[in-house]
Design a protein around this nucleic acid. Structure first.
Lengths: 111, 111
DNA sequence: TGAAATACCTATTAGTTCGAGGTATCTTCG
DNA sequence: CGAAGATACCTCGAACTAATAGGTATTTCA
């Protein structure tokens, strides 16, 4: 991993994409902006991160896509499958566990 | 990264080690158990994770070590340096940002 | 006309966690 | 006494994956 957003990002792109797409179908370019929005600017993922994850999720059956022509441009919309929802559930529970563990650890105040 | 604990672990070992050592000096083997404890079993890191991170933190000046012989065995105690405290502060703020962003994103209920 | 936004995509780099394996000493128990 | 297990250190190789940079093409707006 090369930094930027830095640490603590592993698994985050996948989680966010599944979470957003679980609400409604979206296309890649839209997801890039959407992630900035829903995280309140806290997390920003470039297209170079989004597209590969989208493709890999589709390959493993978590997403399915369909192309739509919109005013000369082509958009690829992604939707979550049953498998994707399962994957999302697992990621959410993993996230909850790690997040909880770190929070607990950080709390034991050093002050 | 090979899984196990799985996703969401990048940067976590470094953060936890610095956080624990900021409270008091400890040695590697002790840290392995300590992390299990302070995270309430949520996170468990093997020696194969701990030692390399410890070494790399020492190399970049975030930690300093001293050996102590304790009943025939040798323990290597690590303490946080000024640089390590700065690094810890940065990691904590990064963590807060990412954690906050993900939480916000996950909340927009899909129900 | 030209710049910026929209929209897609890939290859390379680099950082790092994880598992497995290895040495050696001390303690405990049968 | 001998064996097993805990203590304590360490390294190597594999696997994963985020980030950057670069690339194409169309539409919109000054």
């Amino acid at each position: 991993m090369a930094q930027s957003n830095p640490p603590f990002m592993s698994g985050v792109p996948e989680l966010l994409l599944l979470r957003l797409l679980d609400d409604k179908e979206m296309y890649g370019y839209e997801l890039v902006r959407s992630i900035r929005d829903v995280t309140n600017e806290a997390i920003s993922l470039g297209e170079g991160v989004i597209y590969p994850v989208l493709h890999s999720l589709e390959r493993n059956g978590s997403l399915k896509s369909k192309r739509k022509a919109v005013g000369g441009r082509t958009r690829v919309y992604y939707a979550v499958t049953k498998k994707g929802r399962d994957r999302l559930a697992k990621l959410q529970s993993d996230w909850a566990r790690i997040q909880g563990g770190v929070s607990t650890a950080l709390e034991g105040a050093s002050a």
